[in-house]
Design a protein around this nucleic acid. Sequence first.
DNA 1: ATCCCGAGGG
DNA 2: CCCTCTGGAT
Length: 219
Amino acid sequence: MLTIKQWLLCLDEMDRMFPDAHCELVHDNPFELTIATLLSAQCTDVLVNKVTKNLFQKYKTPEDYLAVPLEELENDIRSIGLFRGKAKNIQKLSQRLLDVYGGEVPANREDLVTLPGVGRKTANVVLSVAFGVPAMAVDTHVERVTKRLGLCRWKDNVLQVEETVMKKTPIEKWSKTHHQLIFFGRYHCKAQKPGCNECPLFDLCREGQKRMKKGLVTR
DNA sequence: ATCCCGAGGG
DNA sequence: CCCTCTGGAT
């Protein structure tokens, strides 16, 4: 496992690699970010942005999403995976926002996760990005990268990963670190082909050392 | 543990 | 062809 000092060195390096890592889901308000994040499940944000560009022109409010038949909304997001469930959840979420929250997205986790289609990960993204509340959303990239580096254990579940990353990271850096881990996972430490050969974090990385011993890395 | 589920890359 | 993508509900 990485020591705290080693982890802080990783953070320094990621500051150099991705000084302006940020949320790449295009949005103008908490409601749009909630929809975009819901749509981003098992889907690249490039695809989400392609869909929301038209979607957010057509639908501005929860009422707008409820004003069309489910099939129409499905068609409007069809190019995204899991479109049937996501369309249904968007309408149910819109209904609940109107019924319980006055049409506004709530700014706390307990209420957010009661929204259909919104789990802990999505809630943490909305909290952190839309409301500036410290949170750590653990997605596929954060999980893979922190486990490869050796900050977390391979058997950890997402909640354990979330707790470990928050515990080891200064709270004022949570948001930036979250996006840097995503950029690092998305553009460098990829699922299929981790770029160990040219990785600035190689000397700190447990998986890198393993791959080195296996002769998979040439440095 | 399993299902949902299309686009994009290798 | 196979794998992955800022997961959530059952």
